[in-house]
Design a protein around this nucleic acid. Structure first.
Length: 675
DNA sequence: ACTACGCCCCTTTTT
DNA sequence: GGGGCGTAGT
C-alpha cells in the first residue's frame, strides 16, 4: 500500500491527524509521494474522495498525483477527488454553483482596458511621472489583486509607488469602468475566478471539504490564501519549501508559509530532510548558495544516494552562441536519454538560441507553453468563432474575427458589434435572427465638415447596393446592412458570419462544433486570406500550389484542435479549459527546454543551467522593479536542484548580436566555482 | 475619418 | 515576432 514505501518522516506527515499540518519539504525529499500517500490514507480512513480538495500549481501535477492514487483505489474513486490549480478548481466549482463564466486571456483584456484608458485625459494633471500604459496598468492591478485583500488600489499603489499619486483617482475610475465593461461583455479573468469563488463561498454551504491539500504552499499569494481561508476547512495539509518560493512577482506571500505555525492553534509542522534526488555534490552546491539567504528554519538535508558521481561542472565560453553550440554538442554525445536531459534558463529569451543550435545538431527538443500552436492566427480565429457562439456578448472575439473582413477596420467592426448588440438586446445572435427595432441604430457621424466624397453617397445606407449578391432574404432585411460605411466585401463577410451563426447554437459537442467552424464560409474566407498572405511574393504574385499547401497546413491545425476537443462536455468547457491550461501543454519530443519557473517540481538526470551571467541570472532589471536578490537566489536553487546525476553550469562572456560583455553570475562565486 | 501597410522598437517569470 | 506609429490611399 502507499504508506509502506515511505520513510519515517514522510509517514509521520502522511498519517497526521486532521488539523492544520504544514510539511516542510526541501527539494527532492519526496513531497509528491507524501501527498499521494496522504490522500490514500484519508480514503482508507473513510474520507469520501469528493470531500478531498487538492490544489496544485499546474493541472498536470494534479492529474499525476491523482493518477498515482488511482493505482490503489481505481479511477472510479479517485476521479471524485476535486483536484487542479486554484483557477481550474474555482472554475469547476463556480460552474457547479450555476455561474456562467467566460474566461478571457489577459491579452484580450488589456486591449479592452486600453480602449478605456485612451478615452481619459491625463494631460491636465500635474505630475512628474508619466501615467502608466494600459498594459502595465493591467499587470500592476493584477499584482495588486493578488497581493492584498485589505487595501484599496490607491492605498496599495501609495505603498508601492508614491510618484503616481496625482493619477490615483483616474486609475480607480478606470478600473471601475473596466469592471462594468467586463460584466457587460460577460468576461472573467484569472483573478476574477478566485475572487468570485471566495465571494460565492460566503453564501453557500454546498461546498466544503474534510481536508484541503495544497502543494507548493510557499508560492501561495494573498488572494489564494484568502480563498483557502474562505473554504473554512478544519483540516489543511500544506506542503512547501521556503527556499523554493519564486513567485513574488505574482504576489506570492512568504509570510503565509512563514506564519503558519503561529496562525493556527493546532498547527503541526513536519519536516522532510532526506533527499532522494540529487548526488551529494549537486546538493552541497545548491545548499552553499541558498544558505546565503536568511534562514527561516534550519536546513539539514541528508543525502541518501550512494555511489560516485561527477561533481557539477562550470563551462565558460567566449560568446553566447558558442555556448549554445557547445552545449548542443555535449547533449548530442551524452549517453543520457534525451528525455532525461534539461536545459534550464532564467529568461525565455535563451530558448530560441539553444533550440536553433540543437536543431543544427539534428536534435529535437520539447518546449513548454504550446505557444506556436495557440499563437497561430488560424487557431485564434477558430477559438474566436467558438467564443462568439458560447458568449454572444463577446465583443473582443467578434472584432478579432472581423479583422479579416476587407474594408472593415477596428472602428467599423466595433460599430457593427454595437448595432447587433442593441438589436439583440445584449446578444448578437438575437441581433442577427430576432432583431428588435431600434431608434438610433448607428450613431450619427460626429461631424460632417469634409463631407463630399463618401459620407453622403452611402448616407442612407441603402440595402439595394447588396441586391444580387445571393444574400438570404432574412439577412437582407436585417437593419445592420444599413450601416453607411459597410461595403460589398464587408457585407459578404458579414453574410458568411451570419450563416455560420445560424447553424451554431444547436451544436453542443465541441468536436462537432470545430467541424462546423472548419466547414464554414467565414473560416474558409479567413483561411484564404492567411494562406495568400503567407505565400505572396515581393512582386505580389501568388503560386496557386503553394497557396493550397498553406491552406492545407491551416486546416491541419484545425483538425488538431478538433482532437483536443475530445471529451469536453460543452463548447464552453472546452474553451475555458484551453484558456486555463493551454500553456501547460508542451510541444515536441526530446531535450527539455525550460525556464526556471517552468522547471518547478520536475527532475532530470542531466541538467544544464545556461546563461549564468550577472544581469541575466540574476535578472538585475527585475530586481530593480521590485524583485530581490534573495528571490533570484531561490531561482538558482530551484534550477540546480532539478539535477539528479549531473549538473552543468555555463555562461558566455560576450553577446556579439547585442554587443554586450558579461561577467559571471555572483551565484557561481557563492557556489565556489568562480572568483 | 477610417483602413491598410510598411518600418522601427523591444522582448520577465505564470494561472 | 509582435505591437506601436507614421503615411498613403479610399
Amino acid at each position: 500500500m502507499p504508506l509502506s514505501r515511505l520513510n519515517n518522516e514522510q509517514n509521520l506527515a502522511a498519517i497526521a491527524p486532521l488539523g492544520h499540518n504544514l510539511i516542510i519539504a526541501s527539494a527532492g525529499t519526496g513531497k509528491t509521494s507524501t501527498i499521494v500517500a496522504r490522500i490514500a490514507y484519508l480514503i482508507q480512513k473513510g474520507v469520501h474522495p469528493s470531500n478531498i480538495l487538492l490544489l496544485t500549481f499546474t493541472n498536470k501535477a494534479a492529474a499525476e498525483m491523482v493518477e498515482r492514487v488511482s493505482v490503489f483505489f481505481g479511477k472510479a474513486i479517485t476521479s471524485q477527488i476535486e483536484a487542479g490549480t486554484f483557477h481550474a478548481v474555482s472554475y469547476r466549482l463556480l460552474k457547479k454553483l450555476g455561474h456562467k463564466i467566460v474566461l478571457k486571456q489577459p491579452k484580450d483584456l488589456k486591449i479592452l482596458l486600453k480602449s478605456i484608458v485612451e478615452r481619459r485625459r491625463f494631460d491636465q494633471i500635474e505630475s512628474s511621472a508619466k501615467p502608466y500604459s494600459a498594459a502595465y496598468l493591467y499587470d500592476i492591478f493584477s499584482l495588486y489583486q493578488n497581493s492584498t485583500i485589505s487595501l484599496s488600489f490607491s492605498d496599495w499603489l501609495a505603498e508601492n509607488d508614491s510618484e503616481h499619486g496625482a493619477y490615483f483617482d483616474i486609475y480607480e475610475d478606470i478600473f471601475e469602468e473596466f469592471c462594468e465593461l467586463k460584466k457587460e461583455f460577460g468576461y472573467v479573468d484569472f483573478n476574477d475566478l478566485l475572487i468570485f469563488m471566495r465571494e460565492a463561498l460566503k453564501s453557500t454551504h454546498e461546498i466544503s471539504y474534510d481536508e484541503i491539500l495544497i502543494d507548493e504552499y510557499q508560492d501561495t499569494n494573498t488572494l489564494q490564501g484568502s480563498l483557502i481561508d474562505a473554504f473554512e476547512s478544519k483540516s489543511l495539509f500544506c506542503v512547501g519549501d521556503y527556499d523554493q518560493s519564486i513567485y513574488a512577482f505574482n504576489g506570492a506571500n512568504i509570510d503565509i508559509i512563514g506564519s503558519f505555525a503561529t496562525r493556527y492553534d493546532d498547527a503541526q509542522v513536519f519536516t522532510l530532510n532526506k533527499n532522494y534526488r540529487s548526488s551529494n555534490k549537486i546538493l552541497s552546491l545548491a545548499n552553499r548558495v541558498i544558505e546565503k539567504n536568511p534562514r527561516l528554519y534550519e536546513k539539514r538535508l541528508e543525502v541518501t544516494r550512494n555511489g560516485e558521481f561527477e561533481p557539477p561542472k562550470l563551462l565558460i565560453y567566449d560568446e553566447l552562441f558558442y555556448q549554445y553550440q557547445a552545449i548542443s554538442s555535449m547533449i548530442k554525445v551524452s549517453t543520457c536519454h534525451q528525455d532525461d536531459i534539461a536545459v534550464i534558463f532564467r529568461n525565455n529569451s535563451s530558448a530560441d538560441g539553444i533550440e536553433a543550435t540543437l536543431r543544427e545538431q539534428g536534435l529535437t527538443c520539447k518546449r513548454k507553453g504550446g505557444t506556436s500552436f495557440f499563437d497561430a492566427y488560424e487557431v485564434k480565429a477558430m477559438l474566436d468563432l467558438i467564443s462568439v457562439v458560447v458568449n454572444p456578448k463577446d465583443m473582443m472575439a467578434f472584432i478579432h474575427v472581423f479583422e479579416y473582413a476587407k474594408g472593415v477596420g477596428s472602428s467599423l467592426s466595433k460599430e457593427l458589434f454595437d448595432a447587433l448588440f442593441k438589436l439583440g438586446e445584449g446578444n448578437i445572435y438575437q441581433g442577427f435572427f430576432h432583431p428588435k427595432s431600434v431608434d438610433e441604430l448607428f450613431k450619427k457621424r460626429a461631424k460632417n465638415h469634409q463631407l463630399g466624397l463618401f459620407d453622403d453617397i452611402h448616407d442612407f445606407g441603402s440595402v439595394s447596393r447588396f441586391y444580387n449578391l445571393g444574400f438570404e432574404e432574412t439577412f437582407l432585411s436585417n437593419p445592420i446592412l444599413k450601416h453607411p460605411r459597410l461595403n460589398t466585401d464587408g457585407a459578404k463577410f458579414l453574410h458568411h458570419f451570419y450563416k455560420f451563426m445560424k447553424h451554431s447554437t444547436r451544436i453542443k459537442n465541441p468536436q462537432t462544433f470545430v467541424n462546423h467552424v472548419l466547414s464554414s464560409e467565414v473560416f474558409s474566407a479567413i483561411a484564404e486570406i492567411l494562406a495568400t498572405k503567407r505565400v505572396i511574393k515581393k512582386d505580389g504574385s501568388v503560386d496557386e500550389n503553394e497557396k493550397q499547401e498553406a491552406r492545407g497546413r491551416i486546416f491541419r491545425k484545425g483538425h488538431l484542435l478538433k482532437d483536443l476537443a475530445l471529451g469536453y462536455a460543452s463548447n464552453e468547457r472546452f474553451l475555458n479549459a484551453l484558456t486555463l491550461g493551454s500553456n501547460e501543454m508542451s510541444e515536441g519530443e526530446g531535450v527539455n527546454l525550460l525556464s526556471v519557473h517552468a522547471s518547478k517540481g520536475l527532475e532530470f538526470k542531466e541538467v544544464y543551467v545556461i546563461d549564468l551571467m550577472d544581469g541575466r541570472f540574476p535578472n538585475r532589471k527585475l530586481m530593480q522593479k521590485g524583485g530581490s536578490l534573495e528571490e533570484e537566489r531561490r531561482l538558482f536553487y530551484v534550477a540546480t536542484t532539478r539535477a539528479k546525476d549531473m549538473l552543468y553550469l555555463s555562461y558566455a562572456k560576450y553577446d556579439k548580436i547585442k554587443k554586450i560583455s558579461y561577467i559571471h553570475s555572483p551565484f557561481l562565486v557563492e557556489a565556489g566555482l568562480a572568483h
